[in-house]
Computed example of a mutant assay.
Amino acid sequence: MQPEVFVEILRESMFMVILLVSAVILPSLVVGLVVAVFQAATSINEQTMSFLPRLIVTLLALSWGGNWLLTKIMDFTYHMVDLIPQVTG
């Protein structure tokens, strides 16, 4: 059992987390930035105007990318199960 195996598992896990989270968060960040620029340009400071579009875009990103997200998680889980003999023996 080599320490490099654990470092590799941690690296793959962190990459998977970053990939899956960014697929949902980045569209929301872009919409939030557009709404913030619009609010700054028009001097409208309404909280729901900022929250509702980001919520809708986040839900759309989850619904459109849900199959891809689930496939990535399942492939990663299968890969981790395949690594069990290498880690234990």
Rank of each mutant, 00 (worst) to 15 (best):
S13V: 01
L59Y: 08
E4Q: 12
L33S: 07
G65K: 01
F38G: 14
S63D: 06
V7C: 06
N45R: 12
V21T: 15
R11N: 14
P85D: 05
A36H: 10
V7Y: 12
I73S: 15
H79K: 13
V24A: 14
F76V: 03
L69R: 04
V30N: 02
L69S: 11
V31S: 03
N67R: 13
V35K: 02
E12Y: 04
M1R: 10
E4D: 11
T58P: 04
Y78P: 01
G89N: 10
M49L: 14
L52K: 09
P3L: 08
D75R: 05
F38Q: 07
A41P: 03
E4P: 01
E46I: 00
W64M: 10
F76Q: 08
L62W: 04
S28A: 15
L33N: 04
Q39C: 05
F76N: 05
F51R: 09
H79S: 13
T88F: 14
M80Y: 04
A40F: 00
G89Y: 01
P53C: 07
G65T: 07
A61Q: 09
A40H: 07
I84G: 09
L55A: 12
N45V: 01
L59A: 15
I9R: 05
S63A: 15
K72Q: 15
R54F: 02
S22E: 10
L26G: 05
L55W: 05
I9Q: 08
T77W: 09
V35S: 03
W64N: 08
L33M: 08
P27S: 07
L83T: 07
E46D: 15
P85T: 03
M49T: 10
L26A: 10
A61E: 05
A61R: 01
Q39M: 13
W68G: 10
S13G: 15
T77N: 12
Q2Y: 08
S22A: 13
E4I: 01
V21W: 02
A61C: 12
A41W: 02
V31N: 03
N67G: 12
L20R: 05
L60K: 02
L83W: 04
S28V: 06
S43I: 00
I84K: 11
V87M: 15
S22Q: 13
S28I: 08
N67F: 03
T77S: 11
I73E: 11
L29V: 09
H79V: 02
Y78D: 14
D75K: 03
V24H: 05
G32D: 00
I9V: 15
V21S: 13
S43D: 13
L62V: 03
V57R: 00
M1C: 09
I9T: 02
L83H: 04
V17I: 13
N67I: 01
V37L: 10
L33E: 09
E8M: 11
G32W: 00
V21A: 14
A36L: 11
L70I: 02
M49R: 02
T77Y: 07
L70W: 05
W64H: 01
Q47H: 04
P27C: 06
Q39D: 03
G32V: 02
L10C: 12
V37Q: 08
I56S: 11
D75F: 01
E4R: 00
G89C: 00
M74S: 12
R11H: 10
V24L: 11
L29A: 09
Q86D: 15
P85L: 07
M16K: 06
L26N: 11
V35P: 03
W64E: 11
A41Q: 09
I73L: 10
N45D: 15
F38W: 02
L59Q: 13
